[in-house]
Simulated scan of single mutants.
Amino acid sequence: MIDRGVPWASAVVGLILVFAIRYRRGSKADRHPLPAIVSREFEIGWTAATIFLFLFVFWWAASAEIGAYSVPRDAIEIHVVAKQWMWKTQASNGAREINELHVPVNAPVKLILTSQDVIHSFYVPAFRLKRDALPDQLTETWFQATKTGTYGLLCTEYCGTDHARMLGRVIVMEPEDYARWLSAQPEGDDLAHQGERLFSERGCAGCHAPGSTVHAPDLAGIWGRPVPLEGGRIATADAAYIRDSILQPGRDVVAGYRPIMPSYAGLLSDGEIQALTAYLRGLGSAPAVARTPGLPDLRSNVPGSAPERSPAMVPGAPVQDRPAPAGPAVRP
């Protein structure tokens, strides 16, 4: 059976050949003079205007796209771990959910995604939101829901037998309802406190505490700062750097230190690495963040921010019971 496009393609190619031969340079074909309006100045002006329009549209679209990746400073932070075949979410205050995500309306929410096994893709069609969750890597995205309701959550990367059943929902609530829902969740330690315990239990404090006899970098206040590495390179102490330093400590060795730290690959889960990262971020200092009207103080959920430091936030200090920070924390 002949493809329907073949006759049309043949007709176009035939016309091109006929016109190329009939009106070739030097042929006796009748050529009427061009209209007076078609001049060199007109062609130059039209071409310049077209180029300017193209560049303007390109700049406008690129600016809007780049701006969409800039997470607002007051965004509520949610950690998402994908696993065959479920979505596990945890807010910075410790509230955990499986295949559900509660968020307040008209509030920006930052998602930090990773995967425990294969590549998954976090997709909320109603929000035009899609971001891959990769094993052994962190990816980020953000959104701000503008209408309350329940919206479907899908995985759009084939991830195994039950890929089509890896479903969830995003529940967008009024700020007051969200605050009540949040306060009704089982109490538990926030990510920073979990990381604080892990920092001691896993032996990190034995090397990185200020009074340690082992020559290792002091991690207090390191978050967000440049770190000089061997070979003259500079790295920024962000979530990706912390994760790589835990799993691949020999790759980026801090200048002036020997590569003696063991790898924790296979010894720490993704959730534990997230908790340690939250704790190390809390060791830094940042200006206070304005509260979202109608919501609890979300300062501890804002990337780069931290509550006021206490002795329990210093590496090697004993863990103390403290009240968990107030809330966690959605742009279509």
Rank of each mutant, 00 (worst) to 15 (best):
Pro210Gly: 07
His193Glu: 15
Pro125Ser: 12
Gln116Val: 00
Pro226Trp: 03
Gly14Thr: 14
Gly203Leu: 07
Val289Ala: 15
Ala48Pro: 00
Asn93Thr: 02
Gly211Ser: 13
Pro33Arg: 13
Ala237Leu: 10
Gly152His: 05
Thr148Gln: 12
Ala184Phe: 01
Met173Val: 00
Val6Ile: 11
His32Tyr: 09
Ala288His: 13
Leu101Gly: 00
Arg96Trp: 08
Tyr264Pro: 06
Leu101Glu: 00
Val13Cys: 09
Thr213Asp: 04
Asp252Met: 13
Asp136Pro: 02
Pro328Asn: 11
Gly304Glu: 02
Gln185Arg: 13
Leu276Ala: 02
Ile51Arg: 00
Gly256Asn: 07
Glu201Phe: 09
Ala62Pro: 00
Val302His: 14
Gly26Leu: 06
Ile21Leu: 08
Leu134Val: 04
Tyr23Asn: 06
Arg281Pro: 05
His79Gln: 03
Ser300Tyr: 03
Val118His: 10
Lys147Leu: 03
Thr161Cys: 02
Asn99Ser: 07
Ala9Asn: 10
Gly221Ala: 05
Ala288Ser: 11
Arg73Asn: 10
Asp252Pro: 08
Cys155Val: 03
Ile2Lys: 13
Val330His: 07
Leu198Thr: 10
Asp244His: 14
Arg128Gly: 15
Ser63Leu: 02
Val6Cys: 05
Asp297Gln: 01
Asp30Tyr: 15
Asp190Lys: 01
Pro135Ile: 15
Ala255Pro: 01
Arg169Tyr: 07
Val314Thr: 10
Gln90Ile: 14
Leu113Met: 07
Leu55Val: 00
Gly327Ser: 05
Arg25Ile: 02
Ala255Cys: 01
Leu53Arg: 14
Pro307Ser: 06
Ala240Gly: 14
Ser121Pro: 01
Ser300Trp: 10
Ala95Phe: 07
Arg96Cys: 03
Arg25Phe: 04
Glu187Tyr: 11
Pro328Trp: 08
Met1Cys: 06
Ala216Glu: 12
Ser183Arg: 13
Ala29Gln: 01
Pro323Lys: 02
Gly26His: 12
Asp30Cys: 01
Ser115Cys: 03
Ser70His: 06
Leu15Asp: 08
Pro328Thr: 06
Glu97Cys: 01
Val118Ser: 13
Arg243Asn: 12
Trp142Lys: 08
Met313Pro: 05
Asn99Phe: 06
Ala235Glu: 13
Ala240Lys: 12
Ile242Asn: 04
Gln185Trp: 09
Ser70Ala: 15
Asp244Leu: 14
Trp46Pro: 00
Tyr151Asp: 03
Ala237Met: 15
Ala286Gln: 14
Met166Trp: 03
Val18Asn: 06
Arg322Ala: 10
Gln84Lys: 13
Leu134Glu: 10
Phe127Met: 08
Gly304Val: 13
Ala95Asp: 11
Ala326Asp: 09
Arg322Asp: 02
Ala235Gln: 10
His208Arg: 08
Glu174His: 10
Gln84Arg: 15
Lys88Thr: 08
Ile246Arg: 14
Ser115Ala: 15
Gly266Ser: 11
Gln248Arg: 07
Val71Gly: 00
Ala235Pro: 01
Gly26Cys: 00
Arg131Asn: 07
Gln320Arg: 12
Gly206Trp: 01
Gln320Pro: 04
Ala286Met: 08
Ala64Met: 05
Ala75Lys: 11
Ile37Tyr: 08
Trp8Ser: 04
Thr236Arg: 11
Lys130His: 09
Leu198Gly: 02
Val71Asn: 00
Gly195Ile: 02
Phe54Gln: 01
Ala133Phe: 05
Glu308Asp: 07
Glu43His: 06
Ala29Glu: 15
Ser310Asp: 15
Trp142Leu: 05
Pro104Thr: 03
Met173Gly: 02
Arg22Glu: 05
Gly168Met: 01
Thr139Ala: 15
Thr50Gly: 10
